[in-house]
């Protein structure tokens, strides 16, 4: 199934993705600045009012910044997933995608490899963010208090969440005809996914405020991604979250492979002549 050509091609796709990422310094900076602003400004401001009583996976009362960290990690992956999809549309419009599609690689492999490369870039961003957050904790700007082992146990959760968010973006990009249309899709996807979730507030508190809003949060796969990361960061496994994230990934990737038409935006599909 997977042969030598595929392994070398995967390496090539990773190589290009990282080269492009490091050359687009603004992308790297914005990927870090966005969650750091949330962490430093939002959590510092709300620290006094939003401290949280113990509930799973936390053993004790936690300051608000501890609660926010998993949501911000997932936010980085959400933005990266959409950014990767945007670059797929860009490649399709600029013609670079044609180079990929005229190689002897199956189309499903090309999409999975692109997805894998996007996940690898998102891991780099998340760990850079966690390192900076750790730095702030060390100098007592924040009280994160994450067990160092948590930085390792969170890795599988980040991989699977990155895969889901990238696959969702890819499925969306397969349906978008032109680059300009994707900005609108992002506004209708990124912000609702992030805000209608447990990224900023715990579900029990949302439930107390509005049951309808709580229900929307439970329908959002991003909520399960955030919770999966939250539990994994504290060395625990959240089975329901893992299941929802895995199933959503498979469905989104299946849709992307089915819907992906390289000629979209260039020409209509042909019919039997």
């Amino acid at each position: 199934m997977i042969d030598g050509l595929m392994i070398r091609a995967l390496y090539g796709i990773l190589y290009r993705e990282f080269l492009r990422f490091f050359q687009q310094r603004a992308r790297f900076l914005s990927a870090l600045v966005r969650p750091l602003i949330w962490l430093l400004v939002f959590s510092a401001g709300w620290r006094q009012t939003q401290g949280l009583a113990p509930y799973a996976p936390y053993q004790t009362y936690i300051p608000y910044e501890v609660y926010m960290i998993p949501g911000l990690c997932a936010m980085i992956q959400l933005f990266n997933g959409m950014q990767s999809s945007l670059s797929m549309i860009y490649d399709r419009e600029m013609g670079s995608m044609r180079v990929l599609l005229t190689t002897p690689l199956p189309r499903w492999f090309i999409l999975v490899a692109r997805l894998f490369a996007g996940v690898a870039v998102s891991l780099l961003q998340v760990y850079a963010f966690l390192a900076i957050a750790f730095f702030f904790t060390y100098f007592e700007f924040l009280e994160l208090d994450i067990d160092p082992i948590g930085y390792i146990t969170v890795l599988p959760a980040l991989v699977i969440c990155g895969f889901m968010l990238g696959a969702l973006g890819m499925a969306l990009s397969a349906t978008v005809k032109q680059l300009e249309n994707f900005a609108g899709v992002m506004n209708f996807v990124i912000f609702p996914m992030f805000f209608i979730s447990s990224a900023l507030f715990p579900l029990w508190r949302i439930k107390d405020l509005s049951y309808t809003f709580y229900q929307f949060c439970t329908y959002n796969p991003f909520t399960y991604a955030v919770e999966l990361i939250r539990f994994a960061l504290h060395g625990q496994f959240y089975a329901e979250g893992a299941l929802v994230v895995a199933v959503t990934s498979v469905i989104a990737l299946g849709l992307a492979i089915y819907a992906y038409d390289p000629s979209r935006g260039l020409k209509a599909k042909g019919k039997k002549g």
Binding site: R8, Y11, G12, I13, Y15, T103, L105
Partner: peptide, 10 residues
């Protein structure tokens, strides 16, 4: 180099 990898070249 990117293209060579896609074509499975060493």
């Amino acid at each position: 180099r990117y293209f060579a990898r896609l074509r499975g070249m060493s």
